[in-house]
């Protein structure tokens, strides 16, 4: 019964979007590391993407809202730094979603999301959010963002 509820929480979290990249969920992002239960109290383990990412707070707030809406009130968060978050935790499906959304997914080869060219150039290692770098496509000349590999 408790396992059933843990599964339910996992399912619910799949509906919580990343606040910056709404096409992927917090599960897709790989920040939810574990959900455990003790004495009918749930502990959700979250690992930060970047130490200072302001979305981490929003993610917790969004999870709270989602679970409370589904009558789950007895939970808390554990922030875990180790093992450190890595883009390797993103599935191929997640990476495909990113590319479709217009962000080049974390990879050794940076692909232009517009024309799919591999002939791209780094403009700045720092983009609009901590997790993204700023690129330019040398074929279609469009600027685009790329998810950094960490």
């Amino acid at each position: 019964m408790q396992n059933g509820k843990i599964n339910k929480i996992w399912k619910l979290l799949e509906t919580v979007p990343d606040p910056e990249i709404p096409v992927i969920s917090v599960i897709d992002l790989g920040v939810i590391r574990d959900i455990t239960v003790k004495n009918n109290y749930y502990k959700i383990t979250i690992t930060p993407t970047y130490s200072g990412c302001p979305a981490m707070k929003t993610i917790q707030d969004d999870i709270k809202t989602c679970l409370k809406k589904n009558n789950i009130n007895n939970f808390d968060f554990i922030i875990k730094y180790s093992p450190a978050w890595t883009t390797d935790w993103m599935s191929k499906r997640t990476k495909d979603k990113l590319l479709k959304y217009g962000i080049s997914p974390p990879s050794d080869i940076t692909i232009c999301p517009q024309c799919k060219s591999k002939n791209t150039k780094l403009v700045s290692e720092f983009g609009a959010t901590a997790c993204k770098a700023f690129y330019k496509c040398l074929d279609c000349l469009e600027p685009f963002e790329s998810f950094k590999c960490i």
Partner: peptide, 12 residues
Amino acid sequence: IAMSNIALDLFG
């Protein structure tokens, strides 16, 4: 943007 990002990392 780069320096603000670095500041954010450092605050984190």
